[in-house]
Amino acid sequence: MHRSVLFSAASAVLLSACASHHGNMAMTPPAPVADAIRVPAGHKMAMQTVGSGQLLYECRVKANSQADHEWVFVGPTAVLKDRNGATVGKYYGPPATWESSDGSKVTATQVAVAPAGDGNIPHQLVKANPAMGTGSMTGVTYIQRVATKGGVAPNMPCSSANLGAKQTVVYQADYLFWKAS
């Protein structure tokens, strides 16, 4: 009970803070996340987006093996929209890059992942590198990927017969951008 009260209070604070920073943008409080992908204390959510697009995979020889093969993640291509459906940026790579429509962008390094259910890529926490350009990505410290739908590696065979084959998989995820408070 105590934990849910704290979460409700924190959600209300985040919601009001986000509303004051983004005018009429409909911000919803984040759902509880696994401890592994929790943003460290001292950060506040600055922006929420919904990313939808494709993840590219390639059939390759498994690391440390000459006989086994696997689908390896190559990179994303997605459009980022705000909660009102307006396009606010894009996500692409490698390296993983979140770019705002204002031209500012960040790359990031994965810190942790958490399961997201069968058929969905994991939830993720990444630590952002300093932003390039000036704009909404300036000061972003962490990005969470939550509410994932789809995106897992293809379930078609990967073997020496199709080594180098590429497949795209459709996915969607919420990307939550955090800044130091």
Rank of each mutant, 00 (worst) to 15 (best):
M1T: 12
H2A: 08
H2E: 12
S4R: 12
L6K: 13
L6T: 12
L6D: 03
S8V: 09
A9N: 14
S11F: 04
A12Q: 11
A12H: 07
V13N: 03
A17Q: 12
H22L: 13
H22P: 15
A26C: 15
A26W: 02
M27I: 13
M27D: 10
P29S: 14
P29N: 10
V33F: 03
A34L: 15
D35M: 13
V39I: 02
V39G: 02
V39L: 03
A41D: 01
G42T: 05
H43N: 10
K44Y: 15
A46Q: 11
A46S: 15
M47V: 07
M47F: 09
Q48V: 10
T49M: 02
T49R: 04
V50W: 09
V50N: 12
V50M: 08
G51N: 07
G51W: 08
S52M: 06
G53W: 04
Q54H: 14
Q54K: 10
L56R: 11
L56V: 05
Y57V: 05
C59W: 00
V61P: 04
V61L: 03
A63T: 06
A63K: 06
N64H: 09
D68L: 08
H69R: 06
E70P: 00
V72S: 07
P76Q: 09
T77A: 11
L80R: 05
L80K: 08
K81G: 02
K81P: 01
N84P: 06
G85L: 11
G89T: 01
G89H: 07
K90E: 01
K90M: 00
P95Y: 00
A96K: 04
A96R: 00
W98E: 07
S100T: 07
S100M: 04
S101H: 10
S101C: 11
D102K: 01
D102M: 03
T107A: 02
T107P: 04
T109P: 13
Q110V: 13
V111N: 07
A112Y: 09
A112P: 14
D118Q: 12
D118A: 15
D118H: 13
D118T: 15
Q124P: 15
V126Y: 00
V126T: 05
K127P: 10
K127F: 05
K127D: 05
A128C: 11
N129F: 12
M132R: 05
G133E: 10
M137K: 00
T138E: 05
V140L: 02
V140D: 01
T141G: 11
Y142K: 11
I143F: 00
I143Q: 04
I143E: 01
Q144R: 07
R145A: 03
V146D: 06
V146F: 12
V146C: 10
T148N: 00
T148P: 03
G150N: 03
G151Q: 01
G151M: 02
G151P: 03
G151S: 02
V152F: 06
P154I: 13
P154N: 02
N155D: 09
P157N: 15
P157W: 14
C158E: 06
S159N: 08
S160M: 01
A161H: 10
N162M: 12
N162D: 13
L163F: 09
G164Y: 12
G164H: 06
G164P: 06
A165P: 13
A165W: 08
K166C: 15
K166Q: 15
Q167M: 14
Q167A: 15
V169M: 06
Q172P: 13
Q172M: 13
Y175S: 00
Y175D: 00
L176C: 01
W178T: 11
A180V: 14
A180W: 07
A180G: 03
S181D: 14
S181P: 15
